[in-house]
Nucleic acid binder design. Sequence first.
DNA 1: ATTACTAGTTCCCGAGTAT
DNA 2: TATACTCGGGAACTAGTAA
Lengths: 214, 214
Amino acid sequence: MKQDTQILYELSRRLKSPYDELFINSAEFGKLLGVSQQSSSRYLTRLESRGLIERKVTGRGQSIRLTERGVEALRKMHTELENFFRTHAEIQVRGRVVKGLGEGAYYIGKYSERLKDALGFEPYQGTLNLDVKGKFSPERAKTIRIEGFKEGNRCFGDITCIPASISHGKSKVDCWIIIPERSHHRDELELIGKFNFRKKLGLRDGDVVEVSFS
Amino acid sequence: MKQDTQILYELSRRLKSPYDELFINSAEFGKLLGVSQQSSSRYLTRLESRGLIERKVTGRGQSIRLTERGVEALRKMHTELENFFRTHAEIQVRGRVVKGLGEGAYYIGKYSERLKDALGFEPYQGTLNLDVKGKFSPERAKTIRIEGFKEGNRCFGDITCIPASISHGKSKVDCWIIIPERSHHRDELELIGKFNFRKKLGLRDGDVVEVSFS
DNA sequence: ATTACTAGTTCCCGAGTAT
DNA sequence: TATACTCGGGAACTAGTAA
């Protein structure tokens, strides 16, 4: 296992810039790495012999700076992490499939016609519930509003729908996040779509899926 | 030495996003790390037990994804590298002190009055030469132009000056980069200032210094 | 196929210490 | 004071192999 980069990284944390230098003794540098003075010294001589750092060793410590090659090694790591974390236009939330209360199917049935009008298709009569541990915040999302209605003496409130997609493994299908007017489950996300997602994506309780929306 | 992060990093290089998953067998993952199938397997079970990754192990390989905690470990590293590499408003060039040709002092003497007019002080009669291996490119720098003149039948060309600062260790002093009209030494930087920099900063040939300018 | 345990080997760590 | 070498003990590696 390459550990050179790990040491270069710990060094970089103590430098203000790639051209800065650190004056330190091998015992103190060892503490930064969680190793002994001897190992620290060994690491530093090794990094120097590999052309990743330059040192001026004195009787009172040593000044350490990265060489061009050392900086390049860190820059490569930085670039790859930058790419990994680059925020996509899409907002992504990861959630875990959980059992719904069975209410979903009932309500989708009641709203069926209105959903068909708004979304352009008649949704599968059931919801997929995801545990997202409060990580969902739809502030900036595009939404579609479905107005509430009364049936007899029962009230059915407004619903907000967010077009999204759900992906699991290599599969990705369109879906809609639905948010009842008075949402009580802040930690759960309710999804509807053309299909039974559990069958379509082969989902079981506890599976982790990713929901993307704009 | 902590190597967990190094392994997480190698994993992240194979993922499209923090929520992506990688299907791979332990032998192949070992190759990515440069270790055996057995070590690779040991690493993965350890990372899992530490809550840094989640796995679904099957008879044909395993799908691996980062946990929230694993993502956080990488994000911390990314943030610190971001800080380390953050481009300052200042442009920084690192150079190595080299012997000049002795011409510097002669020319500074000739331009002395004009430099005093332009820069506001009479410079030390000598230059500090830095080997910058072609890394210096003053495209966007603020410059001060000093016009050339004739003395008898000798021509002294225009000079471009860039206000800058030179730092070495903890010391940092103002200086000017001077660029003769027909600069022949693309790999060298010539600096002037109020002082003898070699004395002021305790410089010797081969020392690395940093020059900053805007 | 895999994963991952056991066992034997390598090599790394750090205490002691020379310089 | 430092750095960094030697060397004994142990951690970590991998070959073999069970599941």
